[in-house]
């Protein structure tokens, strides 16, 4: 299930619901990311996330589909925030269920790498010294390139 939310979500409630629904598969991996309170030396006061309604959801759906093609996972939940976020607030949650841990770990890792570099979101960092649109770091692209298939 893919959800793009304009309002805050309860991380623990989401994870509990996923486990209740999908946990019987055997292995569950969850990853959550939160807004950092600082960027280097500078204080971050918040984030603003923009999306392209419809197109963003389809871009996430394509990433999920590819993860399911690569690993025998039984269930995937992806929750991603848009709008205005405060430091400490969860921005993304990925839950993956599978029969064994390795495929659950790898699929979650894969999903995050492509949520960072291919899902249609744009992120503006609001800081005490002004605002700046953020591009993925070189390391984010390097992480995504690890999954390139040699075929």
């Amino acid at each position: 299930m893919i959800r793009v939310l304009e309002t805050p979500f309860d991380l623990n409630a989401e994870i509990a619901a996923f486990n209740a629904r999908a946990g019987a598969a055997g292995a569950v991996v969850t990853f959550s990311g939160a807004v950092r309170g600082e960027a280097g030396e500078r204080k971050v006061t918040g984030l603003e996330l923009e999306h392209f309604p419809g197109v963003t959801e389809r871009s996430i759906s394509a990433i999920e589909k590819e993860a399911r093609r690569r690993w025998p996972v039984t269930d995937i939940d992806i929750v991603h925030r848009i709008g205005r976020l405060a430091p400490g607030e969860p921005i993304v949650l990925v839950c993956v269920a599978a029969a064994h841990r390795r495929e659950a770990f790898e699929a979650a890792d894969y999903l995050m790498d492509f949520l960072k570099t291919e899902a249609m979101f744009w992120k503006k960092e609001l800081r005490s010294d002004g605002a700046e649109w953020i591009a993925p770091r070189a390391d984010d692209y390097k992480d995504a390139a690890r999954w390139k298939e040699n075929d």
């Binding site: 392209f52 979101f121 953020i134």
Partner: peptide
Amino acid sequence: IAFIPPVSGG
């Protein structure tokens, strides 16, 4: 027609 700069999710 939509113009998009590099994306940055997560």
